[in-house]
Design a binder for these strands. Structure first.
Length: 214
DNA sequence: CAGTCGATTCACT
DNA sequence: GTGAATCGACTGA
């Protein structure tokens, strides 16, 4: 018997900590995405911490720019970026205002609204693949840059929310190197996932892009 | 202002 | 396992 997940919103100060502390604490929490067609709910199973200006793997490593601006703002907001010319990825901003940092939401189990997610994720051959990977997660939840800066801690009708859910005991959390992160930024075991969960994405080391041949 | 490449995914061999 | 897709942010000249 498991208790029903707690739908209380996570308070702002939950996110005003180091992403290294927030990230494992996010596993088992619920992301709610309110769309015009209805809500989707996702139980987080895999995340990665990005520690801002001191972290070579972070977009904030080289200082504040128009793209990473919201990471320097108040905690609990969404940092959405566009990459590889076609995908979006969704993060939660951490640290008090003025200090950049965030947690990349890499994967989860869609527990409500699968009928809304499936047509957006036609390559998924099973529901467990709907949000198995950060760009897949953003696609399934219909997240794009319009939601950059959205407040996860706003009211019940906000487009994005983060609820208490059912946090995972530390013995059920696995850690390892971050996926696809280049150079020194790749060495830290700052990826966290629920051990054995079928919706966690496979690990892939960073692969430098092949240059055009001369 | 041109060159480079990305916190990825998918099709194909 | 390998390579293409696809565009915009960032870098350095």
């Amino acid at each position: 018997m498991t208790a029903a997940p707690d739908h209380t919103p996570l308070p702002r100060d939950f996110f005003e900590r180091s992403p290294l502390d927030v990230a494992p604490d996010l596993l088992g929490r619920l992301v709610v995405r309110n769309t015009p067609d209805g809500p989707l709910t996702l139980r987080l199973t895999e995340v990665e911490a990005y520690a801002g200006e001191m972290d070579p793997g972070s977009h904030a490593y080289r200082g504040r720019t128009p793209r990473n601006d919201v990471m320097f703002g108040p905690a609990g907001h969404a940092y959405v970026y566009f990459t590889y010319g076609m995908w979006h990825c969704l993060n939660v901003v951490c640290f008090p205002e003025g200090h950049a940092g965030g947690v990349l939401l890499r994967a989860g189990e869609i527990t409500e609204g699968t009928a809304l997610a499936r047509p957006r994720r036609t390559t998924a051959r099973h529901d467990r693949e709907l949000a198995k990977g950060p760009a897949r997660l953003a696609t399934a939840l219909d997240v794009d840059r319009e939601l950059n800066g959205a407040d996860f801690c706003a009211g019940p009708h906000a487009p994005l929310r983060l609820l208490t859910g059912a946090p995972v005991a530390s013995r059920d959390v696995s850690t390892g190197p971050r996926t696809g992160v280049a150079g020194e930024g790749g060495v830290h075991p700052w990826r966290f996932w629920i051990a054995g969960d079928a919706t966690v994405s496979p690990y892939r080391p960073h692969t430098p892009r092949r240059r055009n041949r001369t």
